[in-house]
């Protein structure tokens, strides 16, 4: 069952299409089994898991998306922070967040345990939606509407960091998401874990 003993620098002659030793075959079989487990986890989580990036995905004109965001702000604005509107939409609604160099518009105020459909898009270049400190990350691509059903599981004062390089002011691009609990209050710590 063995070919002539040789190194990887030698040309194997004749027929080398021969079965491997049992130990090697065992490892290949185990590795194959593990690969199937790795693979199966993804469709399984689509069905059973709570976190999937599938979403509602659409093409959109950046200007149209921004106009819809402004309409959304007008509809549900409850205040502002440093000039940025704070918007408190009703649970279950479609909510809009526009990324542009170098800000996230608007500030969203959500209720803990309620589902929203969060629409993400960009007015100019690629941005990265990174919810801190939850550490949830999505790519925000101009021309595309990424609709994600999100349910905040904990109240708090969260940040949105831009984690896709978008130009010289990239590191100043921080947004805010507020999640209130069932009594309508926000736990006092800011952005902490």
């Amino acid at each position: 069952m063995l070919t002539e003993t040789h190194t990887g620098l030698d040309s194997p002659r004749g027929n080398w299409w021969k079965p491997a030793h049992k130990s090697e075959r065992t490892w290949v079989a185990i590795a194959f089994g593990w690969c199937i487990v790795l693979f199966a986890m993804m469709p399984l989580w689509q069905v059973k898991g709570g976190q999937n990036p599938s979403g509602i995905r659409r093409k959109v004109e950046p200007a149209a998306f921004f106009a819809r965001t402004q309409e959304f702000i007008k509809q549900y604005q409850i205040g502002d922070d440093r000039g940025m509107p704070i918007v408190a939409p009703p649970p279950g609604s479609d909510i809009y967040l526009t990324a542009m160099s170098f800000q996230w518009t608007p500030i969203l105020q959500l209720e803990q345990g309620k589902e929203y459909i969060l629409h993400l898009s960009s007015l100019d270049v690629n941005h990265g939606f990174s919810l801190y400190p939850i550490n949830v990350n999505f790519q925000v691509v101009p021309g595309y509407d990424y609709g994600l059903r999100v349910t905040p599981t904990a109240a708090g004062d969260f940040r949105i960091i831009c984690n896709e390089f978008c130009g010289i002011g990239h590191h100043t691009m921080v947004g805010r998401v507020i999640v209130v609990d069932s009594t309508g209050t926000v736990p006092s710590q800011s952005g902490g874990i």
Binding site: Y132, N135, R159, N163, H171, T172, V174, G191
Partner: peptide, 24 residues
């Protein structure tokens, strides 16, 4: 990275950002 620190980022103290971000 497991703390959510972004790659390709000049300043994670966010000194020039409108909202503060306090990393662990």
């Amino acid at each position: 990275g497991t703390f959510g620190v972004p790659r390709r980022h000049w300043d994670i103290s966010f000194s020039q950002a409108p909202f503060d971000v306090a990393f662990n």
